[in-house]
Design a protein around this nucleic acid. Structure first.
Length: 109
DNA sequence: GCGGTGACGGTCG
DNA sequence: CCGACCGCCACCG
């Protein structure tokens, strides 16, 4: 991550890396865990900056409405596929049950 | 340094 | 349930 908000991006990616398989987290949740409250938008921006080749489980981050924010044509379709591969149920409209799949880390907030 | 912009979020109608 | 609004924040031209 050379150029972009290095420090913040690094924290964001670190949190995303902790999301376990079969679970999802919201943009706002990731921001908060990264120590950047109210920077949900920035999380989306940081993930968008990945664009492609990455070992980061970016598919596990969705919006607070429990839906995939990424338009189908812009990767949303792939995100849905990867989540299903993770064992997360995603309906045709990109909806995920946060009640069932949201990640709840024990410590920190 | 200013203003437009977006993989957001909460509220309101 | 959906769309319109508004507040938020860092990135970029």
């Amino acid at each position: 991550m050379g150029s972009p908000g290095s420090a913040s991006y690094a924290r964001i990616y670190a949190v995303v890396r902790r999301i376990p398989r079969g679970r999802v987290a919201t943009y706002g949740q990731v921001a908060a865990l990264a120590g950047l409250p109210r920077a949900a938008r920035q999380v989306g921006y940081a993930l968008h900056a990945l664009s492609g080749s990455t070992a980061l489980p970016w598919q596990r981050v969705i919006n607070s409405a429990g839906r995939i924010s990424l338009p189908p044509g812009a990767g949303g379709l792939e995100q849905r596929f990867r989540l299903i591969a993770d064992g997360v149920y995603v309906d045709e409209r990109g909806r995920v049950s946060l009640a069932r799949f949201q990640w709840r880390p024990r410590t920190r907030a």
